[in-house]
Design a protein around this nucleic acid. Structure first.
Length: 259
DNA sequence: GGTAATGTTAGACT
DNA sequence: TAGTCTAACATTAC
């Protein structure tokens, strides 16, 4: 689930529920999701403090508290949940941040592919992981610079977090679908005009996905019918499934035709 | 029971 | 060097 748009909605959700509340205790329910930190570290750095803001870079979410920053990555199935601490336990709960007001911010994850870290600051965290600039805030100029002189397929490049952060399999499909560009198109064969269209459609798809209601799944026409053989809602062509980098890529060969 | 699933990463290969 | 491919991770759903 969580690509840029979903994580941005998580960010707003946490900002609306969990800021400026004193943290009583951090409970780690599953150590496997911790990276480079321990339950003891989380408690000593966070207890008695409160989150001052909720920020995002790509698919990562950051919660600064005092001198430390809690860094959340949701993997494939993670999500946050704010609710009363004494509610019955959620089966997928991996981490609970208990506030003094009797509520908790939970980190839920069914498949345990997410990661929780403790960072000193957001900038150094981003550079340590080699993350590119956030896709939502990239200017056209930067966008063109990122792809200049690069080889390989455009879909692969869009999903490369080191080039630009936040796009995953679904969003990259969606953006290329909107822009009318074949996912296997080579980056070096995209001219300036086409890159402009791609940038414009990227922002359009992202903004549409962010304003959509959580749980509403479909961010657009393509994602609502990710199935081989469906009719394309844009041109009436037939949606096809191919494999790119071992991932399923859906596209319409008729209007995503190498512009 | 095989397969694929919105993510990341390491290693082998071209 | 840059890019591609595969497997692995963990768990569930079809």
């Amino acid at each position: 689930m969580p690509e840029l748009t979903e994580v941005e909605r998580f960010r707003k959700y946490i900002a609306a529920t969990s800021l400026h509340k004193s943290i009583e205790k951090v409970e780690v329910n599953d150590r496997a999701i911790l990276r480079e930190c321990s339950p003891g570290m989380l408690n000593s750095r966070l207890s008695g403090r409160s989150f001052s803001s909720a920020e995002r870079l790509g698919k990562h979410l950051f919660l600064p508290a005092g001198g430390a920053v809690l860094a959340l990555h949701f993997g494939m199935t993670g999500r946050p949940l704010y609710r009363k601490s004494n509610n019955p336990g959620e089966k997928d709960r991996r981490l609970s941040i208990n506030f003094r007001n009797g509520y908790s911010l939970l980190y839920l994850s069914r498949r345990r592919l997410g990661k929780i870290r403790l960072a000193d600051d957001i900038e150094s965290f981003g550079s340590e992981l080699g993350l590119g600039p956030d896709a939502l805030y990239i200017s056209l100029e930067t966008f063109k610079k990122i792809f200049a002189g690069r080889r390989g397929m455009i879909k692969t490049a869009l999903m490369d977090q080191k080039l630009l952060a936040g796009l995953g399999n679904i969003l990259s499909d969606e953006i290329l679908f909107s822009a009318g560009i074949n996912p296997k198109k080579q980056v070096k064969d995209l001219n300036s005009k086409t890159l402009g269209i791609l940038h414009r459609e990227m922002l359009r798809v992202l903004n549409r996905g962010i304003s959509g209601k959580p749980g509403e799944g479909a961010d657009s026409s393509l994602s609502s019918l990710r199935a081989d053989g469906e009719n394309c809602p844009i041109c009436g062509g037939v949606i096809r499934l191919i494999k790119i980098q071992g991932r399923s890529a859906y596209y319409c060969p008729r209007h995503q035709n190498n512009s």
